[in-house]
Amino acid sequence: MADARHTKVLIIGSGPAGYTAAIYASRAMLNPILVQGLQPGGQLTITTEVENWPGDTEVQGPDLMVRMEAHAKAMGAEVIADYISSVDLSKRPFTAQSDSGTVYTCDALILATGAQAKWLGIPTEEKFKGFGVSACATCDGFFYRGKEVVVIGGGNTAVEEALFLTNFASKVTLIHRRDTLRAEKILQDRLFKNPKVDLMWHHSVEEVVGTEAPLGVTGVRARHVETGEITLVPCDGFFVAIGHAPSSELVKDQLDLHHGGYVKVTPGTCNTSIPGVFAAGDLTDHIYRQAVTSAGMGCMAALDAERFLAEQEE
């Protein structure tokens, strides 16, 4: 028989939003349970230097998340290494089924499942994933010491990945379909000044090419978006950095979504379309997508949950 656990507040996800929600819910004496998910610590665990977290001129992403987890535990939150595979929001208490077999029930649910890297969706990208194609420079950059790599994208993610890869690669080519980047100006300045970086404007990647035995990347075919001309760009690694998509699969058929899958909340709150279910962080934020705003929303979600539970008791 599966284990059953009940809690007043269940938090799904363990990035800045989830851990901050756990801290505030613990301080409200709600004894929350936080289930970490597949990537404990969220996207910051695959980020190196974080320079925009207030109070830290520079901090390593994984170190920051270790501190947040420790803070949540110190406040009294129960942090569990498990993965929630399905939820039932049709009635209260809400039910969450985990991979371990444990069934969690809760009076209030805080969703903080974050976002995942987007992919181009071309067949050869899938073929070479893990064999030269990656969406995480901080995970795989070390393997390209002294080699040439290609990054595609034009936002903060792409520029941060490209800059990080210059620590290892002999050359980094950044491919972007426009002639200007969306990244913050300070990041653009660093990129343009780096002698290891080449920029390839007005191009998209059509195909990843490589060897069969062993499986490995040898280059990408880039198409000029205006002329259609194809250029083969030699490389040993190809990094996709075109942004992230919200991890809303758990609730896509149960909660109102908008802007391509982000959970919709009432402006100024973390209230979703179902009373007692709250959403915070990158799962709901299609505008800012910052660690500090995610943490702020985690605080809001916990306070909203506390208020909701108090009203139910009354």
Rank of each mutant, 00 (worst) to 15 (best):
Val277Ser: 00
Leu303Gln: 13
Lys264Thr: 00
Val208Tyr: 05
Ala137Ser: 15
Gly243Leu: 03
Leu10Asn: 02
Ala305Pro: 00
Val225Phe: 09
Val9Tyr: 02
Asp63His: 11
Val225Lys: 05
Asp256Arg: 00
Asp189Arg: 15
Ala74Arg: 15
Arg307Gln: 09
Ile186Glu: 08
Ser204Ala: 11
Ser86Thr: 15
Val209Thr: 14
Gly268Val: 04
Gly41Thr: 01
Thr173Tyr: 04
Trp53Glu: 00
Phe238Asp: 11
Val151Gln: 02
Ile122Thr: 02
Gly146Arg: 01
Val133Arg: 02
His71Ile: 10
Leu232Cys: 06
Tyr288Lys: 04
Gly219Tyr: 10
Ala117Phe: 09
Ile274Ser: 00
Gly141Pro: 07
Gly281Lys: 01
Ser26Gln: 12
Glu126Arg: 12
Tyr104Ile: 09
Ala25Ile: 14
Ser98Met: 12
Phe168Lys: 01
Ile23Ala: 08
Ser248Ile: 00
Gly76Val: 03
Leu232Lys: 07
His176Ile: 06
Thr105Lys: 12
Thr57Asp: 11
Pro62Met: 06
Gln254His: 08
Lys91Gly: 02
Ala4Glu: 14
Val50Pro: 07
Gly132Ser: 13
Thr173Trp: 08
Ala305Glu: 01
Phe168Cys: 07
Gln43Ala: 14
Cys136Ser: 14
Ile274Arg: 03
Thr124Pro: 01
Thr47Met: 10
Pro234Val: 15
Ile12Ser: 04
Thr45Gly: 12
Thr20Ala: 07
Met300Asp: 02
Ala280Thr: 07
Glu161Asp: 15
Phe142Glu: 14
Gly114Val: 05
Ala310Asp: 12
Gln116Arg: 09
Ser26Leu: 12
Gly141Tyr: 11
Gln188Ser: 04
Val59Phe: 07
Ala4Val: 14
Leu250Met: 04
Leu199Tyr: 13
Glu212Met: 14
Tyr288Asp: 00
Glu314Gly: 12
Ser273Gln: 04
Phe131Cys: 13
Gln39Gly: 07
Ala245Thr: 04
Thr95Glu: 09
His203Cys: 10
Val233Glu: 05
Asp82Phe: 05
Trp119Arg: 14
Ile242Ser: 08
Ser98Lys: 09
Ala74Tyr: 10
Lys193Val: 12
Lys185Pro: 01
Val292Asp: 08
Phe192Leu: 14
Leu163Ala: 06
Ala137Glu: 06
Leu165Val: 11
Thr95Lys: 10
Ala310Cys: 10
His259Gln: 13
Val217Gln: 07
Tyr19Gly: 06
Arg27Ala: 13
Gly132Ile: 09
Val251Met: 02
Asp285Val: 00
Thr157Trp: 03
Cys270Pro: 02
Trp53Val: 02
Asp285Tyr: 01
Leu38Met: 12
Glu160Asn: 08
Ala245Ser: 14
Gly76Asp: 05
Met29Trp: 13
Thr113Arg: 01
Asp99Leu: 15
Pro62Lys: 02
Lys147Gln: 14
Thr272Glu: 02
Ile33Gly: 08
Ala137Gly: 15
Leu111Tyr: 00
Val151Lys: 03
His286Asp: 15
Val233Cys: 10
Pro16His: 01
Gly41Asn: 04
Gly55Gln: 09
Val265Ser: 01
Leu44Lys: 09
